[in-house]
Design a protein around this nucleic acid. Structure first.
Length: 366
RNA sequence: GGGGAGUUGCCCGAGUGGUCAAUGGGAACGGACUGUAAAUCCGUCGGCGGACGCCUACGAAGGUUCAAAUCCUUCACUCCCCA
């Protein structure tokens, strides 16, 4: 048995939704699942004990950022990333592929790899597929992502095809660079072009990865373009392996993708929105800085989510943000992560109880 | 009592004759954010009207000038120094 494997428990008869379990060295992840994003080994403003209390079973962290600071060798000497951030459950790391896009202006890329000029001090970080996998191995995470080239949106078909070709070139090199027992997920590229997605899936899914991801979405394309990609790309991935949609997304995007057969998600939205004073509720996103909350002496979201945040009034939360008190960002982060945790829990239940339409209706405004 | 500095839009603060409804900050109000260089970025911010514009504004009142936040006179208030 490989260190990471997927167990499909049920499939929704009406949609493509799947209920499953992702088994990792640091425990089981009930899917569909959402991973909070902890780029620098921390889900901003919340601690590992909070993530446990919220019920998350896997977090995402980042190869590029941790490789640069404090360095993967140091983290390895300190006992690995789990030990470093005192997180006992599963960790998946992004390979740095997203930074190939987001930090493109300080990057040189060729078939060999990507050379970053560090955003911290200008020093050079050479990220090859081998080095990316090596760093993730040193971090000791449960799941490493293959290094890919994630093209931005908009990008020409030629650029997308070129990024895909390079991603395919790198995929086998990632597999041969892994440590004994290191699980690696492959990434399908191809942008918004169906034929490229088909080609990419056939290449990537032919390789012995432990799981498969759809990359290159949620990079700025409109929803009307993202949904079709997920719809035709998800079924191209093996049924018996976990399917991960990278970087998604809004609650409605997650609902859509689950119904297309996606099992795993990550997104900065709940935590970033929280720091930008936006709170998720079943009635839509709320800007807690808004004047209307000035004297609202009750929680923003009645009947919400995380007891630790429900005790605080909207007026108080607004005040914390107005006064730039860090507690505001923290409470809002807990609130939003609580919202996402509940969303995923209800998604999992709905697949089993076959109450998908009711669920979709419940989150209609979210 | 004598000498000096000052009073600008919600606040701080530039501006010393026309290009000023007035630079910059902050506050306030609104918006964006999807594998995090993001507790960030963008917009509005005297009133009315679509733009052009008109009205009211730079302590108060008068004056000089084609033209004043800017120059002169008086008054009010604030701060500093010397007695």
């Amino acid at each position: 048995m490989p260190s990471v494997w997927f167990e499909l428990l049920a499939t929704c008869p009406h949609t493509g939704a799947r209920r499953g379990r992702l088994h990792t060295p640091h425990g089981m992840v009930e899917t569909p699942a959402f991973m909070p994003v902890g780029t620098q080994g921390t889900v901003k403003t919340v601690g590992s004990e909070d993530l446990e209390a919220l019920g998350f079973e896997q977090v995402l962290s980042n190869t590029y950022h941790l490789g640069l600071r404090p360095g993967s060798e140091r983290i390895e000497r300190l006992g690995g990333l789990h030990e470093f951030m005192s997180w006992k459950k599963s960790i998946l790391t992004d390979s740095g592929g997203f930074q190939v896009m987001s930090l493109a202006q300080m990057l040189k890329i060729d078939d060999e790899g990507a050379s970053f000029k560090s955003h911290l001090d200008g020093s050079l970080l050479h990220l090859t597929p081998e080095r990316s996998i090596q760093i993730q191995g040193q971090l000791g995470v449960d799941i490493s992502m293959a290094l890919d080239q994630c093209p931005p949106y908009p990008a020409s078909r030629d650029q997308v095809a070129d990024a895909m070709r390079r991603t395919h070139l790198w995929a086998p090199r990632c597999l041969s660079a892994r440590r004994q027992g290191q699980a690696v997920f492959g990434i399908v590229q191809g942008g918004v072009y169906e034929d490229l997605r088909v080609e990419s899936a056939s290449v990537i899914c032919d390789l012995p990865f432990e799981g498969f991801a759809i990359g290159g979405v949620s990079v700025g394309e409109p929803t009307e373009l993202q949904y079709p990609v997920v719809k035709y790309a998800a079924p191209l991935l093996p049924v018996n392996k976990v399917r991960y949609l990278m970087g998604v997304g809004h609650p409605k995007d997650i609902l859509n993708a689950v119904s297309c057969g996606i099992d795993l998600f990550d997104c900065v939205l709940p935590t970033r929105m929280a720091r930008h004073h936006a709170l998720y509720t079943l009635n839509g996103r709320v800007n807690i800085m808004g004047k209307k909350w000035e004297e609202h002496n009750g929680p923003v979201d009645e009947g919400s989510v995380f007891p630790q945040t429900e005790r605080y009034s909207a007026a108080y939360l607004r005040h914390l943000f107005k006064a730039s008190e860090p507690l505001g960002a923290r409470l809002a982060s807990l609130h939003n992560l609580g919202f996402y945790a509940r969303l995923m829990r209800e998604i999992r239940e709905s697949i089993v109880t076959q109450s998908w339409p009711e669920l979709a209706e419940r989150y209609r405004l979210a």
